[in-house]
Design a binder for these strands. Structure first.
Lengths: 243, 243
DNA sequence: CCGCCTTGTTCATGGGTGTGGACAAAGAAA
DNA sequence: TTTCTTTGTCCACACCCATGAACAAGGCGG
């Protein structure tokens, strides 16, 4: 069950992030399609907790830097090493494709860091973007790091659904693909999840965390480069982990 | 009316900020005193939106850096100039007391930047801390920048409540004190809000924003230094605004 | 100044949601 | 293995809160 008002808080914060200036009650209500009275209550709640203020009288609310402080404290506790983020930048520069770091979240994988390709046609990803864990290269790279029972308990909950002809449709197909990938030395995904989308991933164990390094782009640009790409990622990863 | 689940989101994020490591459903439920089922729904909602992930299988959830990205986008849109934050640091160093920047939020003033005194006995403030707008020095420094009608509409909603012998108990008392302060050249508060607490403030108009610079500390350390303090703040402010 | 329109605030109520409890799954102990 | 405890998941229902509607307060144009 999804908690509506919790989602609304996130929606409101995202609204301010894209708007980048204060908003009055009516503006928020209109833009987000909420009743004015509900908006009133929600803004009041966030303001009371010190998360909203009024930069100018009568010009509406805007988030205080309190959120930033909170987020900093949270992120500084489990940071990604500098070497990993520079690796992402290097990979994007050399390959021209989008690179990222993903982790598990229920039956999905979620990006916790992304460096986007500069090309007009590219894999468009952002931190927080989620994708199925069983039919993406980075998802399986994460799964490969779990123990058999843990992986089983995740896969049991997966809602197998067909996205394309190559989509695996059962636990055993996923397990088989993971085995093949381990032998091969890298994880890959050829349009299993989204038409035209191709990903190459490597497991990235980091301070006990089960992460994955992934480079993804359009199938036609990626397909014949996969082995070379995987080799380059492996070198970069070994170098970064050694640091 | 306070929106419970919205407040719970903030509580949860603050929980992670102080805990600084992943938490399982049961731990969250126990530590925050929520029913397990409600906790389940809330965590699920945040996870679905890409704000939570599982660093290690079976070791619980932790916020993704998505929140940090969001907060950065929000704060970069209305930043405080470098000169202001260095002014705060300078003031703390020279005076030994806590310095901060405050803004309006309904009938309260809220800190949007704080630099704390290093002394063991000090005014303890954090970004997001709120205080009544009518009986604090910084609150009145903010009010002084508003037009008469705007100020009136704020003051009409103030719940006048006695915190101490000096607390102003009516709109006209507040207006009178603001007038006195403008003539005097600075705003001050001698234990009106909290026993033993003394604040000195100056209005800080910044890009149209109605802010206030405040230095606060224990009454006995502050009282006879007030004029000197105010003069020092004025100099620093003029210098910072010129930059 | 007076209407008119927009914005902000309050409140009673019924539809949606938080929660207790039942169940399932996974460790822990034996 | 089996049993016991802990943790995670599901669900129906009572209750509470989100909301529509009414009201108050500004703002604006005439």
């Amino acid at each position: 069950m999804i908690v509506r008002q919790a989602a609304h808080v996130l929606e409101l914060l995202e609204y301010f992030a894209s708007r980048r200036r204060p908003a009055t009650l009516s503006e928020v209500a209109q833009d987000l399609g909420w009743p004015r009275s509900s908006t009133f209550n929600l803004l009041g709640t966030l303001a009371e907790r010190g998360y909203l203020y009024e930069p100018r009288a009568r010009e509406g609310y805007y988030p205080t830097p309190r959120l930033l402080h909170l987020a900093r404290e949270i992120s500084e506790a489990e940071p990604l090493p500098e070497a990993v983020t520079t690796l992402l930048r290097d990979l994007v520069e050399e390959t021209g494709e989008t690179a990222g770091i993903a982790a598990a979240s229920g039956t999905e994988a979620v990006f916790i860091e992304v460096c986007e390709s500069p090309r007009p046609i590219r894999y468009f990803a952002r931190v927080g973007l989620r994708m199925p864990i069983h039919n993406t290269s980075c998802g399986r790279a994460i799964l490969s790091q779990m123990g058999a029972t843990e992986r089983a308990s995740v896969l049991r909950k997966v809602p197998f659904e067909r996205f394309g002809p190559a989509t695996p449709m059962s636990v055993s197909e996923v397990e088989a693909e993971i085995r093949r990938s381990v032998e091969r030395g890298w994880f890959q995904n050829l349009a299993e999840f989204s038409q035209d989308l191709c990903g190459v991933s490597l497991p990235l164990p980091l301070g006990g965390r089960q992460l994955a390094l992934v480079v993804a782009g359009p199938l036609n640009r990626m397909q014949e480069r996969i082995p070379a790409l995987a080799a380059r990622m492996r070198r970069g990863l070994d170098h970064a982990l050694a640091a």
